[in-house]
Simulated assay, not measured.
Amino acid sequence: MNDSDRTAAGAEQHEPDAALLDQVRALPKVLLHDHLDGGLRPATIVELAAQTGHPLPESSPDALGAWFVRAASSGSLELYLETFAHTVAVMQTEPNLRRVARESVLDLAADGVVYAEQRYAPEQHLAGGLTLQQVVDAVQAGFAEGVEQAAADGRTIRIGTLLTAMRHADRGDEIAALALANRDAGVVGFDIAGAEVGFPASRQASAFRTLRDASFPATVHAGEAAGLDSIAEAVHLAGACRLGHGVRIIDDVHDELDADGPRLGRLAHWVRDRQIPLETCPTSNVQTGAATSVAEHPVTRLKRLGFTVTVNTDNRLQSGTTLTRELALLVQHAGWTPADLRDVTVAAAQHSFLHHDERTRLVVDVIEPAFTAATGGRHRA
């Protein structure tokens, strides 16, 4: 992807240099917000679309990859979501779902991701005649193949699956039941996604009640296209353990100062006091208009104010990005240090939907030793 394509994505014109990217790529990373149908390889889309007869806007992988970034950079979440018509179209059979899941794991492992929670909406993959359970089985098989192949290549990665219900489809109860039925088969959480404005979390209230009664965690897309009311519903009605994006909580951080710094509103206090993690996605948030630039992205200010923040990719294809690139952009354009990178990596591990003992082992055995070795124990640039 060339510089003009990157600029079209809403990212700064100057990309991180190769040395910085190599340094960040070598660090262990934890990814909590990554959509399976937003991370396909362009070459895979071209090949699978040719097999199914699905028309594409571009015929070569390079041109198609650049098209996805341009098309997703409209400044509107609704238009951004339209790009998924092409990825979902090639994910309607068991072999295709397995392939996409396997390749996603391999791409994440190559980027230095050691734990990822990948999310997708099973209801979007039924056009080829699969049942919801067959969709889950195919994706889990692909994840397992990817983990095994990554290990053979000398890379260790673990995948947790989040099942997503689409806000507009009102199938939340069905997808919640599906998630619970697969909670011992790799599914670790539930999510709702899609157009945020006009489709509040309250439409899925019964699904969230079922999940809470079953002690099953949920994250909710909120505070991206919609504002504080959406975040309030996510944390108070849905009982979200994390907020997908959540950047609009900055609207409740006010310019006037009190004794402790900027004055926080009641909702901002609630989110910060309870350390509800924000799954921020800098490049994607710029593309959809939730942030003006990576340099000015609210994640940096929110982190400095004591909110729990994590850094994520959202949709690697639509944003032309990787987790390495997202973190390197924050280093280059927002002044982040290795200590900041360590903080968000540990925060992501500690707020994953793994069990507590598994999170602790991930931090103690994998993340901390690698950061210590890379920085001489100083965690400084």
Rank of each mutant, 00 (worst) to 15 (best):
residue 292 T to I: 12
residue 301 R to M: 14
residue 70 R to F: 01
residue 26 A to W: 06
residue 149 Q to N: 06
residue 12 E to L: 03
residue 360 T to M: 08
residue 180 L to F: 07
residue 332 Q to K: 12
residue 279 E to M: 00
residue 316 R to L: 07
residue 273 D to A: 13
residue 269 H to D: 13
residue 2 N to L: 01
residue 119 R to N: 05
residue 91 M to C: 08
residue 84 F to V: 00
residue 118 Q to D: 08
residue 175 I to R: 04
residue 35 H to M: 07
residue 76 S to D: 12
residue 60 S to D: 10
residue 344 V to Q: 07
residue 77 L to V: 07
residue 76 S to F: 03
residue 123 E to C: 11
residue 374 A to M: 06
residue 144 A to S: 13
residue 22 D to W: 02
residue 89 A to L: 00
residue 23 Q to M: 09
residue 269 H to C: 13
residue 228 L to D: 09
residue 162 L to S: 10
residue 360 T to R: 12
residue 218 A to Q: 11
residue 266 R to C: 08
residue 353 F to W: 08
residue 229 D to M: 13
residue 269 H to A: 11
residue 162 L to R: 10
residue 220 V to T: 05
residue 117 E to K: 03
residue 321 T to C: 00
residue 365 D to C: 04
residue 352 S to E: 02
residue 291 A to R: 06
residue 62 D to H: 07
residue 11 A to R: 07
residue 87 T to A: 00
residue 134 Q to V: 04
residue 261 G to M: 04
residue 248 R to V: 09
residue 354 L to T: 06
residue 216 F to A: 09
residue 55 P to I: 04
residue 97 L to D: 00
residue 112 G to C: 04
residue 268 A to R: 08
residue 136 V to W: 05
residue 215 S to K: 11
residue 381 A to W: 15
residue 139 V to E: 01
residue 102 R to A: 10
residue 64 L to N: 00
residue 310 T to A: 02
residue 54 H to R: 02
residue 110 A to W: 02
residue 376 G to N: 10
residue 147 V to F: 07
residue 357 D to P: 06
residue 134 Q to K: 10
residue 175 I to F: 01
residue 381 A to F: 15
residue 371 F to G: 03
residue 328 A to M: 02
residue 118 Q to I: 15
residue 277 P to W: 06
residue 198 G to E: 03
residue 332 Q to S: 14
residue 32 L to V: 08
residue 95 P to K: 01
residue 100 V to N: 02
residue 321 T to Q: 00
residue 31 L to G: 07
residue 293 S to I: 08
residue 205 A to S: 12
residue 205 A to P: 01
residue 69 V to S: 02
residue 263 R to N: 09
residue 86 H to S: 04
residue 115 Y to S: 08
residue 363 V to E: 06
residue 160 G to C: 05
residue 258 D to H: 08
residue 293 S to D: 01
residue 84 F to M: 03
residue 358 E to V: 14
residue 157 I to F: 04
residue 211 L to M: 12
residue 203 R to M: 07
